[in-house]
Amino acid sequence: MPPAGIWIDGLVQSSTYITMAFGMVLVFSILGILNWTHGQYYMLGAVIVYYGVTAAGVPFPISMLVTGLIIAGLGMLVKKVIIDRVSGDLYVGAVTLALIFFFEGLASMLFGMQDKGLANVMPGSMDFGSFSVSYQKIAVVGFTLVVMIAMYIVLNRTKVGLSIRAAAQEPRAASLYGVRVDRVSLIVMGIGCALAAWAGCIMGPVYSINPFIGRIPMIFSLLAIVIGGLGSLSGAIIGGLILGFLNSVMAYYISYYSEVVLFALVIILLLVRPQGLFGAALK
């Protein structure tokens, strides 16, 4: 049985993957593309919140909120200016892959290559007797819970959520019933990018910040939504939990080979059940 710290780490990792995976699932179900740049929005979120807190001196929660809005605007801009002008699913994939390099280059030019930390934002830790958990990690888990509840409310209780669900299910029929699908897809792109940016903000103080931190969370949240099923939000939660715990607990026993096992697991899962554990079969 691994020590409690391993399980806590698993929970923290799962939380990041879930927040990131939500955005990817939303974008995939509306736009029909995988947004490979998602990890870079995570990275940009962390970078902007770093500057907000250290250079501008804005309190962490406010700068986090503003960062989310900025990245949402950036995502919408990318959608409007670049993705809409590229035709063909294959080439949209290519353009989002190319944007990874663009954003990483931009961040390395402006931010520099060295690691920077935000550790002084939420110091201290909570004592649980035999082990202690830093407030920062509690904040990550708490934030993810808030995101989950908020997403549930937005998608199921509001008019925007209704149109998002309608557009995901049947875009043509939804547009016949008065849903403006292009506007909905813009909103979804904004929400997805904001979620990625917030994941980056909340994880910024836990790990160090550099222009390349977006790569690993992108790959892992991709695997999470593949396990859960592309296009299913509850699947993304389950997939994120499986992935986070499996990764940290297996890494305790077999170190780096745990990643091989995870990737092999995903390959086998895709071959046996391409729609994922919980996803409905895609068209």
Binding site: R85, A94, V95, F102, G105, P211
Partner: peptide
């Protein structure tokens, strides 16, 4: 540092937009 990556990405994006 990073300007190479930035331009790499920009070139691909421009090619995909203008030579679809």
């Amino acid at each position: 540092y990073g300007i190479a990556q930035l331009l790499y990405g920009a070139v691909v994006v421009l090619v995909l937009i203008f030579l679809p």
